[in-house]
Simulated scan of single mutants.
Amino acid sequence: MRTLRSPASKLSLFLLLSINLFLIILVILTVFGIASAALIRFGWVPANFYERPVVGPLFFACVVSLFIGFSTLIMIDSVLIKPMHRMIDAVNELAKGNFGTRIRLAKGSHSLEINEFARSYNKAAEELGSVELLRKDFINNFSHEFKTPIISIKGFAELLQDPELPQAERDEYLEIMISESDRLARLAANILELSKIDSQKIGSGMTVFSVSEQVRRAILMAESKGAAKSLAFELEIDEVAVLGNPDLLKHAWVNILDNAIKFSPDGGTLAISVRRTEQSAQIRIRDEGPGMDETTLRHVFDQFYQGDTSHASEGNGLGMALVKKVLTLHGARIDIDSAPGEGTTVTVTLAEAEATLGKNEAL
């Protein structure tokens, strides 16, 4: 962390305060002199009052005044001016992108407002530092995910230039190139979707619709992928409506189902339920896959994070990040229950339409 030092220009405010204090004393003395002259002129004070020996008391008064003045200036410099310059330096460092800068003030030696500003600044700098770290991680991960399929496509394209390459290998390489191209397309689509959700406002596109019907359609869309792995679907769907953006929520169900199918073993069972609970809709999807350990569970919603570090399974680590953003936008809760070798259960809880409408009317 950078230790802040006040610049040489810090004297400007100190001198300004000194001049102001001098002018205030000068005005007070002038007013006092005029008042004294008026009192003598009107006879309210004896004319020989000031002929008495008062040099000692006046000198003492001047010394005390100077001491009080300088003490006041030193206190103002310590309590106000120096902290202000530390804050100015800190803000300048923040503007340069140095998010590790902090304002350090001794407790109790400054006003409440300055201490509060320092706390607010430190909190803002910490948040900005976290955002910057996430941004760098995002760029690094995106670059890796984007570069890998491009290198793969380039490598197989160079192999295809060989005129003596057997047709079987040629077809295999073309299939891999098509697969990698699809991977790039999915990555670009997910990035665009995340960007769209980040700028989305919950008030736009809101309508009451049947979440039960939407989940059924998501299952139909995923049926071909399930059939390829001979999965059995166990369905338990109540009729329940919610207030939300159907286009956004559709992405949530599709991504959760895709994950469940991707990690399910061949011939496994996928249990899907939609139930009405107390003023809410509960959507639950359970698979019989390998499950997740505690580390994977902690990072499951991080962008580009993949529990399968070998990247043997299809995906780019954006699906669950997209799901989390969509559900957060709707004020919904998502819980994941999983353990190695025990499969994974994803539970989403959405407010029922009647409960949501009733709450909005009450507001």
Rank of each mutant, 00 (worst) to 15 (best):
A271P: 10
F156Q: 02
A168V: 12
A38I: 14
F42K: 11
S204M: 11
L318P: 01
S130Y: 09
P7G: 03
L243P: 05
V63K: 04
S36L: 15
N20F: 15
S313E: 14
L322D: 01
V79A: 11
L134D: 13
L66C: 10
P290F: 05
M206Y: 08
A241F: 12
E361W: 15
V300K: 03
G33A: 14
Q167P: 08
Q161V: 08
N140M: 10
N20P: 07
E223D: 14
T277S: 12
I28C: 12
L220D: 15
I114K: 04
V208K: 05
G108L: 01
M177Y: 04
P166V: 06
L133A: 13
R2C: 00
W253I: 06
I40Q: 15
F60H: 05
N316C: 03
N190M: 00
L133V: 09
D247L: 09
L257K: 01
L23D: 03
G341K: 06
S199I: 05
N259E: 04
T296V: 14
S224M: 13
S199E: 07
L128S: 06
S130M: 12
D198A: 01
G33Y: 15
V27E: 12
A355P: 05
M84C: 10
K10C: 06
V323I: 03
L192W: 02
C62N: 07
R217G: 13
M320P: 01
D89E: 15
L21P: 05
G319R: 03
V300A: 01
M75T: 15
K201G: 12
A281H: 03
Y173G: 03
I40K: 13
V54M: 10
